[in-house]
Simulated assay, not measured.
Amino acid sequence: MSAPQMPANETQRIHVLHSLGLLHSAPDERFDRLTRLAKRLFNVPVAKVTLVDTDAVYALSCAGQSSAPVPRELSFCSHTIVNDGMLVVPDTRTDPRFCDNPYVTSAPYIRFYAGYPLAVPGGARLGALCLVDFDPRNFGDEDVALLRDLATMVEQEVAAVQMATVDELTLLLNRRGFEASAPQALQLCTRMSKPASLLFFDLNHFKQINDTFGHAEGDRALKVFAETLRKVLRSSDLPARLGGDEFVALLIDSNRDETALVVERLRTAINERNEVDRRGYDIRFSVGQVELPPDARGAIADLLARGDAEMYKNKQATRTTTNH
């Protein structure tokens, strides 16, 4: 049995997956309708929409079989998300990747699998629309085209969910997306005994930018800050726009000193962008920093409140310094 490869964008993929809030959601008729349709059109005993998480693969929707999680290393869909296009296995017993898989050699005795990777805008592949049969079968070009069309319909439904968790202007997570994704990131830190840090940002004099230069220029300032924040942070970190001119970033495996260096790099990068753009105003920010030990517990709302309070202290200190 071959172990599935790890996607090159695995960290970003997991962040996107968790931000959607679909992993442990209640049954959703939008997806159930499509798995029932796939099961009927292909006359297979099982059709699923799966989501590939860090260690397990979950069924977002399943028609015809138990929807219990499957270990990632044993899942066919773990191979599908790194496959270019559709993965078709006409007879699992003759495929060296799967012939000794426990789901092939023992119950439920899978003999056929076809799966199409499900991607969201940005390219992250979250899982698959898949068909399972307990007898070998052929899968022709028309079958491939039909399953691809159904997978596109699933992707459209997932994209609709994603739009509710992503800020349309900056393309960062919004508050809802952050509050859904941050707990999993903190659980990972706890499991790996790693610290984390929260940075809570507020743009200084943002109302003045809107009033003087117009809301379109204010939107531009927000996008510039978001782009710079994304460039400075590591791919494992979790940035978001909470609303208005407030941003937040959860830094994974980052202690106080490392986080302070990130803030300084961000200030330098913003200053450099100010020099290049020369808009008639400078983008400035205040920031609150909250340190989280590996065993940190508590609600995300409480963590954000602490970050907001620390940011306000920083803003007040900056004003005092400026006045003197």
Rank of each mutant, 00 (worst) to 15 (best):
G127L: 12
Q156L: 14
D202T: 11
G177C: 00
L203Y: 03
E157T: 05
E155I: 01
E155Y: 05
R125Y: 03
A196S: 11
Q156S: 12
K194I: 13
E168T: 11
R137L: 02
E157H: 08
V132K: 02
R191C: 02
D149M: 15
N174L: 05
L172F: 00
G177E: 01
L188A: 13
N174E: 05
D143C: 03
N204S: 10
G123W: 14
V132E: 01
F139E: 07
L150F: 02
L171E: 09
D167A: 07
V154Q: 02
V120S: 02
Q156E: 13
N204L: 06
F134R: 09
L203A: 06
M163F: 06
R191V: 14
S197Q: 09
R176K: 07
L126Q: 02
N138D: 15
R125D: 06
G177A: 05
A145F: 07
T165L: 03
F139P: 14
T170D: 07
K194L: 14
V154M: 04
M153S: 06
A180V: 05
M163G: 04
G140M: 06
D167W: 00
L129K: 00
Q187A: 14
D202S: 13
P121N: 07
L131S: 14
V144K: 15
F134P: 10
V154E: 01
L129D: 04
D167G: 03
A128D: 10
S181P: 00
D143I: 01
L199D: 09
T190D: 07
A124P: 13
V161P: 07
E168Y: 06
T152V: 10
D135V: 13
Q162S: 02
L188Y: 10
R125L: 08
M163K: 11
L203Q: 03
A151T: 02
